[in-house]
């Protein structure tokens, strides 16, 4: 059974009424399954929007409008969290362009990063990011790739205490510096941790995801498709005969459902430049999610390909 992303997008109009399986600490926001931020109980849809590479389009007005359409479709589909970084080139102004076009939806959950080794420049960088987005304040500010985290975190906690931020977090990607991540999670009162997790990169299952549950830290998952590599790798392979049991109808949804079905995961943030793909990604947060037994079966199937 070969299913392409395009075919699935065409078929999105049907099959949306699959039974919803209630899970602990989960709810539905705008029709999408959501999971609570452990420290506040605020619900976040399980699928968000990443912007690495995809939104770095410079001043190309055609491409900026394409990204604005993706943002519009993301909110139409019930999305909340958009994640970015000063490292992502022109992605911040692109987000600002898209949000301005749809009038800054109230349910936006803005996740940004501070990425500067000279921490005296942190406040100015955050302010520049805020101006690019055009928001009054960020919901979440993360220390990007642990850069000078021990100096940035006190400043971010101070901003949170004075109401200039709502949440504080740290990030890493591709399995790097996990010991340091664990150290920060264990010793600092952070609200979020952002890590790489997908069906082939599962190192975080050992220690970081259990630690997040223990410390009540929300988890954002980046690189759910390994920057599209997993989609390209599997798109010509058949989905398993039992794919309906997972609730997925494409490889993208199969891969996303594996990630967001882990109970420690709060939100996965796939990035895309296409409206049909953002809709398809959001659909992964509808319907049913695989249980632990099915997750193991999904892993075994993919590893055997």
């Amino acid at each position: 059974m070969t299913i392409t992303r395009r075919a699935v997008v065409r078929g999105l109009g049907i099959g949306m009424s699959m039974p919803f399986m209630a899970r602990p600490a989960m709810s539905q926001a705008a029709g999408l399954m959501a999971r609570s931020i452990p420290k506040t109980g605020e619900a976040l849809p399980l699928v968000g929007l990443g912007t690495w590479i995809t939104f770095n389009v410079g001043d190309d007005s055609v491409l900026m409008d394409e990204c604005a359409a993706v943002i519009a479709a993301f909110f139409e589909g019930g999305g909340r969290m958009i994640d970015c970084s000063p490292m992502y080139g022109s992605s911040q102004p692109t987000i600002g362009h898209g949000l301005a076009r749809i009038g800054y939806p109230e349910r936006l959950f803005s996740a940004e990063k501070v990425w500067i080794s000279d921490t005296s420049g942190g406040a100015a960088q955050i302010e520049a990011s805020r101006e690019h987005w055009g928001v009054a304040r960020f919901d979440l500010m993360q220390v990007h790739n642990l850069v000078s985290w021990d100096e940035h975190l006190p400043a971010l906690f101070s901003m949170k205490a004075s109401g200039r931020l709502r949440y504080v977090g740290i990030t890493t990607s591709e399995g790097r510096r996990h010991r340091e991540i664990e150290q920060v999670m264990a010793s600092e009162p952070i609200d979020f941790v952002q890590i790489t997790y997908n069906i082939l990169d599962r190192a975080v299952e050992e220690r970081i995801l259990p630690l997040a549950q223990e410390k009540r830290v929300a988890v954002i998952v980046n690189r759910p498709f390994r920057q599209g590599d997993l989609i390209r790798r599997f798109e010509d392979a058949p989905l398993p005969d039992w794919v309906a049991e997972t609730g997925a109808r494409s490889w993208a949804q199969f891969l996303l459902k594996f990630i967001i079905s882990h109970p420690a995961v709060t939100c996965a943030i796939p990035a895309t430049t296409r409206v049909d793909h953002v809709r398809e990604n959001l659909e992964a947060a509808r319907g049913i999610l695989p249980d632990e037994k099915l997750r193991k079966r999904m892993t075994a199937y993919v590893e055997a390909l």
Binding site: N56, G58, D60, R176, R177
Partner: peptide, 21 residues
């Protein structure tokens, strides 16, 4: 840690964006 990086990790834009530019 450096061994975990690939060439593609340093590319921050897509070919389409670059060649359109």
């Amino acid at each position: 840690e450096w061994a975990t990086y690939t060439l593609a990790d340093f590319l921050m834009f897509s070919p389409r964006v670059y060649f359109r530019l």
